[in-house]
Lab assay of single mutants.
Amino acid sequence: NQASVVANQLIPISTHLTLVMMRSEVVTPVGIPAEDIPRLVSMQVNRAVPLGTTLMPDMVKGYA
Rank of each mutant, 00 (worst) to 15 (best):
V5C: 06
I11T: 00
V6L: 07
K61H: 14
P57V: 07
T54N: 03
P38H: 11
D36A: 13
I11K: 01
V45N: 02
V49P: 02
Q2T: 10
T28G: 06
P12D: 07
L55W: 02
L55A: 01
L40S: 00
G62R: 05
V6S: 01
N8Y: 03
Q44A: 07
R47V: 11
V6A: 02
N1L: 15
G62I: 04
P29R: 05
A34N: 06
M59G: 03
T28I: 15
V27S: 05
G62C: 07
P57C: 06
T15C: 06
T53V: 11
L10P: 09
P33D: 06
I32V: 08
A48N: 15
T15L: 04
Q9V: 11
L51P: 11
K61C: 06
R39F: 10
P12S: 08
M59R: 00
S4D: 03
L17Q: 00
N46W: 07
A7V: 06
N8C: 07
G31P: 00
L40Y: 02
L55Q: 01
V6H: 02
E35A: 13
V27I: 08
Q44I: 09
L17I: 07
P57K: 06
N46P: 02
P12H: 08
V41T: 05
R23A: 06
L55V: 06
R39C: 08
I37Q: 05
P29K: 06
S4T: 04
L10G: 13
L40H: 01
A3R: 14
V6G: 00
S4M: 02
R39E: 08
S4Y: 03
V30D: 07
P38C: 07
P38W: 15
T54R: 03
V20Q: 11
V49N: 02
E35V: 15
L19Y: 14
P57I: 05
T28W: 14
P12N: 08
S4R: 02
L55K: 01
R23G: 08
H16R: 15
V60N: 02
T18N: 05
L55T: 01
L51H: 12
T53W: 11
L19D: 06
I37P: 01
P38R: 08
M56C: 05
Q44Y: 05
G52W: 04
S24T: 12
M22H: 01
Q2I: 12
G62D: 09
M56W: 05
I37C: 05
T28Y: 11
L17K: 00
S14D: 13
